[in-house]
Amino acid sequence: MQNNIQAVKQFLLGLQQTIIDSLEQQERLGGVDGSSDSKFVIDVWQRDEGGGGRSAVLSGGQVIEKAGVMFSHIHISQLPASATLRHPKLAGSTAQALGVSLVVHPKNPHVPTSHANVRLFVATPNDGSEAIWWFGGGFDLTPFYPNLSDVKHWHQVAHELCQPFGDDVYQQYKAWCDDYFYLPHRGECRGVGGLFYDDVNTDSTGWDFAKCFAFMQAVGQGYLDGIVPIFEQNKHKSYNEQQRQFQLYRRGRYVEYNLVYDRGTLFGLQSNGRTESILVSMPPLAAWEYCYTPATGTPEFELTDFYLKPKDWLAL
């Protein structure tokens, strides 16, 4: 298992750097607000309990207002409640968790916020039995002024990467994403979805470790295949102050979801994780407005009336 963990770790570090390079290129190529040489600031940190990480944050770019691309490999002496709730037999077990997680908040309201996460979790039961492992992750898209071609492209990439792993994999993990990124108190989805999966191992899928790892790799590459064309299609579009304010208002939903419902945030805080890394997903600016309702027929109305309702996007 240790050799497997090291192979996954090397892939994750390479994936993190590839994503950093791709996002910095978007800055250099520029958008409607111009170009910049903004770079990710790299922060290598150690964890007292064991392990550490490599955090990369870009702030104040002309194309990307804030982005965090975070690698971590941490050791956990006692699993927190957010993990053992679904795996009660692992209560009190030691564990390792390693993964790459990212959130990108573009400056232009026409470019969606995007999120991706790929991770491996390995727990060692206290009774001395064999280690239990599983993969999780996915990616999702949160637009403010969406267009159908971008949404279809995003889901087409998701569908194609899932296809080698089974005809039903895309539909299963798409539905899980729609259900997971949902705000019950608002009665709406956070965005237009993508893929979400957890507890992927031999017991749940019939795949061996190598195939589960291959799926992680496909999802990691799929994020870039999905998001880069969307950046290039939309970052040169002009926008006005009203659209900017709507973007900030909708970012408030992102904050609400991450702080109230997201399992990754809860796990990080409960496992005594690095707070700066856990909360790097927060946008640099967000806004709330009392009882705001967009006018019928406007693009702002269309977002919640059409796009934030789960659909078979590839059939439209």
Rank of each mutant, 00 (worst) to 15 (best):
M282N: 05
H110W: 00
G30F: 06
W133Y: 09
K237N: 11
Q17T: 10
K89G: 13
R119P: 00
G60V: 14
W45S: 13
N108Y: 06
I42H: 14
G297E: 05
G31N: 01
R274Q: 05
T113R: 05
V151L: 05
A56P: 05
Q245Y: 10
I227Q: 04
H87V: 12
D179F: 13
L316F: 15
L195W: 02
A123H: 05
G206N: 10
A91E: 13
T265C: 02
S72K: 06
A286L: 05
L316H: 13
A56Y: 02
D178A: 04
L12I: 07
T124I: 09
Y197M: 08
H155I: 07
P106S: 10
F209R: 01
F71T: 06
G99V: 04
D199S: 13
H155A: 01
L308E: 00
N272T: 06
Q62L: 06
R253W: 02
Y249M: 09
Q217D: 10
A91I: 09
G226A: 15
V44L: 12
H73Y: 13
A315H: 12
K174R: 08
A158N: 03
T94G: 15
Q163W: 11
L23H: 04
D48C: 13
P229D: 06
V122S: 07
M216K: 09
V57D: 07
I19V: 15
F215M: 10
L13R: 07
A214I: 08
W45F: 14
L90C: 14
R186S: 11
L269T: 00
N126R: 11
E232Y: 05
Q171H: 12
H185M: 12
H110F: 09
N234R: 07
K174M: 03
R263C: 04
A123T: 05
F246S: 00
C212E: 03
Q25C: 12
A56Q: 02
V44Y: 11
V69N: 04
D21F: 13
G34V: 11
L23Y: 10
P310H: 06
H75Y: 14
S114P: 02
I5N: 12
D33N: 15
V260N: 04
E232R: 06
L279P: 04
K311H: 09
N258T: 01
L195C: 07
P112N: 08
F231I: 07
V111R: 03
F40W: 11
T265P: 03
I132C: 09
N108E: 05
D21L: 12
D48A: 15
S22E: 13
Q156F: 08
S93A: 15
D140V: 00
I132H: 10
L85K: 12
N258L: 00
R86Q: 13
L224C: 10
K309A: 07
W134V: 03
V100M: 07
S93Q: 07
T94P: 09
L15G: 01
H73G: 15
Y223M: 03
A116Y: 04
Y223A: 00
D203E: 15
A158Y: 02
G30K: 06
G60C: 15
C162S: 07
A210K: 13
V151S: 03
F71S: 01
L269C: 06
L314D: 03
S72F: 04
Q233H: 15
A97M: 11
H185D: 11
D127T: 08
G128T: 09
G53Q: 03
G206L: 10
I64L: 11
G60Q: 14
F213L: 13
S72T: 11
F40A: 05
N117K: 01
Q242N: 14
V219D: 01
